[in-house]
Amino acid sequence: MAAKIDPLDIVGIDDQLTAEERDIRAAVRKLCDDVVMPDVAEWFERGELPDVRGLAKEFGAMGLLGMHLEGYGCPGMSAVDYGLACLELEAADSGIRSLVSVQGSLAMFAIHRWGSEEQKQQWLPAMAAGEAIGCFGLTEPDHGSDPDSMRTRAKRDGDDWVLDGRKMWITNGSVADVAVVWAQTEEGVRGFVVPTDTPGFSAPQIHHKMSLRASVTSELVLDGVRLPADAVLPEVTGLRGPLSCLNEARYGIVWGAMGAARSCFSAALDYSKEREQFGKPIAGFQLTQQKLADMSLELTKGTLLALHLGRRKDAGTLAPPQVSVGKLNNVREAIDICRTARTILGANGISLEYPVIRHMNNLESVLTYEGTVEMHTLVVGQTLTGHAAFR
Rank of each mutant, 00 (worst) to 15 (best):
V232Q: 11
A293N: 11
A229C: 08
E353Y: 10
S94N: 13
M77H: 11
A128N: 09
D34T: 15
A110Y: 01
D294S: 08
H308F: 10
L287H: 07
E118G: 07
E42I: 09
D51Q: 14
A257S: 15
Q103F: 05
G54W: 05
D230L: 01
T185Q: 05
D6E: 09
Q119R: 03
G284T: 00
E274K: 05
P7H: 11
L55C: 07
V80H: 05
T185A: 09
R312K: 15
R391Q: 14
I335K: 11
K327I: 02
L304N: 04
A267Q: 13
P320G: 14
D146T: 13
Q322C: 00
K301H: 12
L243S: 14
D148F: 02
K167D: 03
I206T: 13
D159G: 09
E248D: 10
K4F: 03
V181Y: 05
D142I: 00
P228G: 09
S215G: 03
M127R: 07
A27S: 15
G173A: 09
A176D: 06
Q121S: 15
E274D: 08
D14T: 09
V180H: 00
H376A: 05
V35P: 02
G158K: 07
V232K: 06
L305S: 04
D34H: 05
N330E: 06
H376P: 06
P125V: 12
Q205Y: 00
A56F: 03
V162K: 05
D148L: 12
L17S: 06
T383C: 04
Q382N: 07
S351N: 10
L307I: 15
S149N: 14
G346I: 12
R311N: 07
A261M: 08
A79L: 07
P242G: 10
G104E: 07
T217F: 10
G165P: 09
E374V: 09
L384Y: 12
D15W: 00
V221R: 12
A183T: 08
C135K: 00
A129V: 08
R275W: 04
L328S: 03
P38D: 12
K167Q: 06
Q122P: 02
S324F: 05
G173F: 05
R46I: 04
R166K: 14
R151V: 02
T198M: 04
Q277V: 13
A183L: 05
Y72H: 15
K273I: 01
G191P: 01
W43S: 00
S272N: 08
C264Y: 08
L163T: 03
R250G: 06
T303H: 05
G371W: 06
L352A: 02
L106M: 15
C86Y: 08
E248F: 08
W114K: 03
A128H: 00
Q103N: 06
Q184V: 13
M62K: 15
R391E: 14
A268D: 03
T300E: 15
P199S: 00
A176K: 01
A249E: 04
